[in-house]
Amino acid sequence: MISRSLGPELGAPIGLLFAFANAIACALHTVGFSETMVDDVNDVRIIGAITVVILLCITFAGMAWEAKAQILFFIAIMLSLINYFVGTVIPPSVDKQAVGFFGYRGEYTSS
């Protein structure tokens, strides 16, 4: 689309940069996902490799299957957002308060 609008001289470099940026973004998002799942470095590599293989299988399945997978990913993201907001109103335990998590407080404290 870009090469048809701007011509092949500008469209090709922009397309290559866009493809490269998407590849880097996929790698960074996979590492971020893996680090949130586990703490150990080797476990991050294992989860990352499994995630990349699953993404590769989705890519090989075709655009129709990828569009269906997008709906599942969207539902997972919405559930994680709901989980975050519910977690913010649950009072923290004594262990969490010991490390500095206090939750919401109604009273005003001045220093």
Rank of each mutant, 00 (worst) to 15 (best):
I54W: 06
A27D: 10
G48R: 01
H29T: 11
Y84L: 12
F60M: 15
L79E: 07
A61G: 08
V89I: 09
N22T: 14
A67F: 09
F33A: 10
S80M: 12
I24S: 13
A61K: 08
E35D: 03
T51S: 10
M37N: 02
V86Q: 08
I82G: 08
D40S: 09
A67S: 09
A69S: 06
V86N: 06
G32S: 08
N22A: 15
F74G: 03
T59N: 12
D95S: 13
A23G: 13
N42R: 02
A23R: 14
I50F: 08
L72C: 03
A69W: 00
D40I: 02
T30E: 06
M37R: 06
I46M: 07
I58L: 10
F73R: 04
P92H: 01
L28H: 11
Q70E: 10
I24E: 13
V38W: 00
L72K: 01
H29L: 15
I24L: 15
A98W: 05
A67M: 10
M63F: 15
L28K: 12
C26K: 11
C26T: 15
M63R: 15
V94N: 02
I71Q: 04
V31K: 05
P91E: 03
V44Q: 02
N83V: 09
K68V: 07
A27S: 13
D39P: 02
E66G: 15
M63H: 13
A64V: 12
N83F: 11
R45V: 05
A64G: 09
E66Q: 14
